[in-house]
Design a protein around this nucleic acid. Structure first.
Lengths: 232, 232
DNA sequence: TATAGAAGTTGATAAATATCAATGTAAGAT
DNA sequence: ATCTTACATTGATATTTATCAACTTCTATA
């Protein structure tokens, strides 16, 4: 397995194909009732503590998933890119949202109402099987995440998160991946202070691993960053 | 909600009733095929990277769930107490174990073979619904766990983990809960060095929040620890 | 083009935490 | 009963990381 494949497996939920090849009847209902909205950068999609109304899919853009501490700090634990689904946990667990979702850049979001989603789950054995598989995989992603936070240094976590972000921001239209994330959000992902992240990025620049331009980061030495990240 | 209930909700997987009130036919197969084994303290139940053969239930004892770093450190992310199930994620995700399970004290473990479990999931809509609910709840537990690791101090995490452990070790036969865990394992749960945990415990003792006797810890001021933990 | 505000950067310093090296202590084995 | 061994504890110190307080740079907007 290449490093990129490994990252995609260990650090990604991989739920893009949730409704893939389901019976036509189910697909039709989902698709015809689906609502599409535009969400501006910084705008919230749902918030911790609210009652869920349905599930979402990122049609285009990036969405950060975050939880707030009792002292107001934001902890970003996941970035959703195009085609990733979000918000299904609260529906399935019949709990209030335990996290918030906010657009990082201008995004287009599809919404599937709770009723339609639940109906599809109840009617399609394939869908519930797939959800069980996805949710179980997410478990392993989280084990990994807690391990990294508990055992790896800020420097290692900073490098690792850049590699993860590379996978989220890469696309076919650009020759070089432009990672667009501000220092606060990156610090929040890494689990450190904004200034510490700034200093790490400065180090990485001096080591010629990356370049930056304001809030954009470009990876210049992928293998070098992998080494710094010290994972696997 | 009391603090204990909150802890039990936010920090516990709550999967004890997985097979509760399923159709008789399914229950019978599961129960009659179930194998019971005794596992000595320190002995492994399954290991990261192995192919799963079935799922387990802690009949009596405590089991730590852990992941190893590439540099050999153990990260304990969960403690299973009596009646908790483990090992079902790898079966459902059709992946190799992403974590290991090791008995912390002499334990009795029930084993349900993959075949029987999968059959039950496929035949019982209630069971798969229940698993979806449980796995989704686990997601919120993990969000919380990563938030705590990312944002809270070692002192806060040490206090919080003592509260979590209290919930795992309390039982009706003892007047005062005896938390039995060695300093290495506690450090591994908190995400810090053994010596740091020793010093935190020393502080807590001086602040009359706990007493210790070798590897046993007794909480003397629950509310005081809650305050130190700074969660909620 | 001037200006305000947001975001990035830097330096100095404090605080938290890890590491290393001993030393102490209880429980099980012979 | 002694010995061994595994833990727990302590002290000294290094390292890492956070915090605070400027200061700079970019960008959007009047």
């Amino acid at each position: 397995m290449t490093t990129k494949e490994l990252l995609n497996n260990k650090y990604s939920f991989n739920n893009q194909d949730l409704f893939f090849e389901l019976p036509d009847a189910i697909c039709k209902v989902i698709k015809s009732n689906m609502v599409t909205t535009h969400v501006a950068a910084g705008q919230s999609i749902f918030n911790e503590g609210e009652k869920p109304k349905g599930i979402y899919r990122v049609k285009s853009g990036k969405v950060k998933k975050l939880a707030l501490t009792n002292f107001g700090a934001q902890h970003i634990f996941y970035i959703c890119k195009e085609n990733e689904y979000l918000g299904y946990h609260a529906i399935l667990s019949q709990e209030l949202y335990s996290d918030s979702a906010t657009a990082m850049v201008d995004s287009t979001i599809n919404f599937i109402a709770e009723e339609d989603f639940i109906k599809a789950v109840n009617r399609s054995h394939l869908l519930s099987q797939r959800l069980l598989k996805n949710l179980s995989h997410e478990f392993s992603v989280f084990i990994n995440a807690t391990k990294i936070l508990a055992k790896h240094t800020v420097r290692e976590r900073a490098a690792l998160n850049l590699l993860i972000l590379e996978g989220k921001f890469q696309n076919d239209t650009q020759i070089e991946t432009e990672i667009v994330i501000n220092r606060n959000d990156l610090a929040s992902m890494v689990g450190t202070a904004k200034e510490s992240v700034v200093r790490m990025l400065k180090d990485f620049k001096e080591e010629q691993l990356i370049t930056t331009k304001r809030s954009s980061i470009y990876i210049k030495d992928y293998a070098g960053l992998v080494k710094v990240a010290n994972f696997q």
